[in-house]
């Protein structure tokens, strides 16, 4: 009796790709830079510099579900998120921004950056609606690509992070042992 090799056995044992196999920091920086020019303003630049985030921070993110599953997360000070929202809304920004205005604008930036990151990853993948609040936890520190930037002197991070915990390290089997 012959057996058809569907590849299923190989696929279930293959390690999942981690994000650093698929995209690098320079690509994320370039994607974010394009989004900033389009949404925030032509003269708005992101400078790749690490800077400590303050205590009062806000995150916006979208989830990507596909061959790689995780989130594209923007995090910055709440005040910087408000300034970013005001820059995005330009003259149509209300005098006082409420939480909904900030969630909408900051979320849309995550949506645009996340869409471009998704396009750089193997597909097909699905993109969620943007969310704003406390960033999803990092489940696997080995599946994170993070870029630290400064916008108008304020620190901001863009983290592309896997949603799945690390795979267990395979234990050696008798099959793999080599007799000396």
């Amino acid at each position: 009796m012959s057996t058809i090799d569907t590849g299923a056995r190989r696929r279930t044992t293959d390690p999942r790709p981690v994000i650093t196999d698929l995209i690098d920091g320079d690509t994320i920086l370039s994607i974010a830079g394009d989004a900033w020019i389009s949404l925030v303003g032509e003269d708005e630049v992101l400078v790749p510099l690490p800077g400590p985030l303050p205590g009062d921070i806000l995150s916006s993110w979208v989830d990507v579900v596909g061959p790689w599953t995780g989130s594209v997360v923007l995090t910055t000070a709440r005040a910087t998120a408000e300034e970013l929202s005001r820059a995005l809304l330009r003259e149509s920004a209300p005098e006082v921004l409420d939480d909904e205005d900030v969630a909408d604008a900051f979320g849309e930036i995550a949506n645009v950056v996340g869409g471009s990151v998704k396009a750089a990853l193997p597909g097909p993948s699905a993109l969620s609606l943007p969310q704003v609040g406390n960033a999803p936890l990092v489940r696997n520190p080995g599946d994170v690509c993070r870029v630290d930037v400064v916008w108008r002197g304020e620190p901001l991070t863009i983290s592309v992070q896997g949603a799945l915990p690390p795979l267990p390290v395979p234990s050696p089997t008798r099959e793999n042992e080599v007799s000396l």
Binding site: L39, S85, L88, L89, R90, S92, D101, D104, A105, G107, E108, N111, L129
Partner: peptide
Amino acid sequence: DDSRAMRRIVTG
């Protein structure tokens, strides 16, 4: 568009 910000940009 579900984003008010994006609606404002495109409308502008």
